[in-house]
Amino acid sequence: MRHGRLLILNGPNLNLLGTREPALYGADTLADVERITAQRAEALGYKADFLQSNWEGALVDRLHEARGNTDGVVINPGAFTHTSVALRDALLASELLIAEVHITNVHKREAFRHHSYVSDIAEAVFVGAGIQGYVYGVEALDRALVRRDAL
Results as ranks from 00 to 15, higher is better:
residue 45 G to M: 11
residue 40 R to G: 00
residue 54 N to E: 13
residue 24 L to M: 04
residue 61 D to R: 00
residue 95 E to S: 11
residue 104 T to Q: 10
residue 40 R to T: 13
residue 28 D to S: 07
residue 61 D to C: 03
residue 41 A to G: 15
residue 16 L to P: 04
residue 59 L to Q: 06
residue 97 L to N: 02
residue 63 L to D: 10
residue 92 L to H: 05
residue 90 A to Q: 07
residue 34 E to G: 11
residue 74 V to H: 14
residue 68 G to L: 02
residue 56 E to P: 00
residue 51 L to M: 07
residue 78 G to Q: 07
residue 26 G to W: 00
residue 25 Y to S: 03
residue 82 H to P: 12
residue 102 H to G: 06
residue 53 S to L: 09
residue 106 V to D: 09
residue 12 P to A: 11
residue 103 I to F: 10
residue 78 G to T: 14
residue 95 E to C: 14
residue 90 A to F: 05
residue 44 L to W: 09
residue 82 H to G: 08
residue 38 A to V: 06
residue 46 Y to M: 02
residue 85 V to I: 15
residue 61 D to L: 03
residue 54 N to R: 01
residue 29 T to D: 14
residue 40 R to L: 06
residue 102 H to V: 15
residue 50 F to V: 08
residue 30 L to N: 06
residue 47 K to W: 08
residue 25 Y to Q: 07
residue 20 R to A: 03
residue 89 D to G: 06
residue 88 R to G: 11
residue 29 T to Q: 08
residue 42 E to T: 07
residue 94 S to N: 05
residue 17 L to I: 11
residue 24 L to D: 02
residue 66 A to G: 05
residue 85 V to T: 09
residue 82 H to E: 12
residue 92 L to D: 15
residue 74 V to W: 02
residue 74 V to Y: 05
residue 58 A to M: 05
residue 18 G to V: 06
residue 77 P to C: 08
residue 73 V to D: 01
residue 74 V to N: 13
residue 82 H to F: 14
residue 18 G to A: 06
residue 104 T to R: 04
residue 69 N to K: 15
residue 80 F to M: 11
residue 14 L to Q: 04
residue 50 F to Q: 12
residue 64 H to G: 14
residue 12 P to M: 09
residue 88 R to S: 13
residue 31 A to T: 05
residue 61 D to W: 02
residue 24 L to I: 05
residue 60 V to I: 13
residue 19 T to Y: 04
residue 51 L to T: 05
residue 49 D to I: 04
residue 67 R to I: 03
residue 65 E to P: 09
residue 87 L to N: 07
residue 102 H to A: 13
residue 39 Q to R: 12
residue 22 P to S: 00
residue 83 T to V: 09
residue 109 R to T: 11
residue 103 I to N: 00
residue 27 A to H: 06
residue 34 E to K: 06
residue 48 A to I: 11
residue 20 R to E: 02
residue 39 Q to T: 06
residue 50 F to D: 11
residue 78 G to M: 05
residue 87 L to K: 02
residue 82 H to L: 07
residue 41 A to M: 02
residue 20 R to Y: 00
residue 74 V to Q: 14
residue 62 R to F: 03
residue 101 V to A: 09
residue 19 T to V: 09
residue 106 V to R: 06
residue 83 T to G: 14
residue 63 L to R: 04
residue 108 K to C: 13
residue 65 E to I: 02
residue 43 A to R: 04
residue 17 L to W: 03
residue 67 R to V: 12
residue 48 A to P: 12
residue 55 W to Y: 13
residue 97 L to E: 11
residue 89 D to E: 02
residue 57 G to M: 07
residue 51 L to I: 06
residue 99 A to Q: 01
residue 42 E to P: 01
residue 96 L to S: 15
residue 71 D to T: 03
residue 38 A to W: 06
residue 109 R to Q: 15
residue 84 S to L: 08
residue 36 I to V: 10
residue 68 G to S: 11
residue 89 D to Y: 01
residue 93 A to Q: 15
residue 22 P to W: 00
residue 58 A to H: 14
residue 68 G to D: 07
residue 79 A to S: 12
residue 52 Q to Y: 14
residue 62 R to E: 13
residue 82 H to C: 01
residue 36 I to F: 09
residue 60 V to F: 10
residue 75 I to L: 00
residue 18 G to F: 07
residue 22 P to K: 00
residue 50 F to G: 09
